[in-house]
Simulated scan of single mutants.
Amino acid sequence: MTRDFYTAVEERRSIYGITDEFVITDERIEKIVQLAVANTPTAFNSQTGRVIVLLGNSNKDFWQVAFESLKSEINKEQIGKIEGKFKAFASGYGTVLFFEDYEVVTSMQEKFPTFHEQFTEWSHQASGILQYLIWTSLEYEGFGASLQHYIPAFSYDIRQQWGIQHGWKLIAQLPFGKPIVAPKEKEIKPLDQRIVIIK
Rank of each mutant, 00 (worst) to 15 (best):
V196N: 06
S58C: 06
E10K: 14
E68F: 02
N39P: 03
S127V: 15
L97M: 02
L130Y: 05
F143W: 00
G167M: 10
V181M: 04
E68R: 08
E185A: 13
G84C: 14
A182D: 14
A38K: 13
W168P: 00
V53D: 01
T42W: 12
G80C: 07
I32F: 13
E185Q: 14
F62K: 00
P152I: 10
P175K: 02
A66M: 06
K76V: 14
V51Q: 01
R13Q: 12
E68P: 07
A90W: 04
N75A: 03
F154S: 01
E21L: 01
I134M: 08
F154D: 02
Q109M: 15
F154G: 03
M1V: 09
Y132S: 06
E185K: 13
T19Q: 01
I198S: 09
A38V: 03
Q165A: 08
F98M: 12
S127F: 02
Q161K: 15
F112K: 10
T19F: 00
V65G: 07
Q78P: 01
F154M: 05
T25L: 08
Y93Q: 07
G167K: 04
A43M: 06
D192G: 13
F99Q: 00
P152L: 11
I164L: 07
I129S: 07
L138T: 03
Q173I: 13
Q118T: 09
S14P: 10
W122A: 08
Y16N: 01
S127G: 10
L130Q: 12
I74T: 02
S72H: 02
T120V: 13
I82T: 11
F154T: 04
W168F: 08
I188S: 07
T2F: 11
Q47M: 13
F62Y: 10
V33W: 04
I171Y: 00
W63R: 00
K178N: 12
K71Y: 12
N57V: 06
V65D: 06
W168C: 06
I198H: 06
I197R: 03
I18R: 00
S127T: 15
V105H: 03
D101I: 03
D4K: 08
I74Q: 01
G142L: 13
W162L: 11
M1Y: 05
L54F: 11
S72V: 14
R3Y: 15
Y150W: 08
F115G: 04
Y156R: 15
G163Y: 11
E117N: 10
R28N: 10
K169Q: 11
K60Q: 02
L174V: 05
E117A: 14
E110T: 11
F176K: 03
E11C: 09
K184L: 07
R13E: 05
E11M: 06
Q165G: 09
E73H: 15
I134Y: 12
G56T: 01
D61E: 10
D192M: 04
G177C: 04
K184D: 14
Q118G: 13
I151R: 06
Q160Y: 09
E30K: 08
L70I: 14
I32L: 08
K81H: 09
V181D: 09
T7P: 10
F22H: 07
H149R: 01
I79V: 14
R50E: 02
R28P: 01
S14T: 11
N75M: 11
L147R: 05
F62T: 02
I180Q: 05
Q148D: 00
S146Q: 01
F176S: 08
P179G: 05
P179E: 08
Q118K: 14
D192H: 13
L138V: 01
M108H: 04
D4P: 06
P113V: 05
E121S: 13
S146L: 12
K111A: 15
T7F: 14
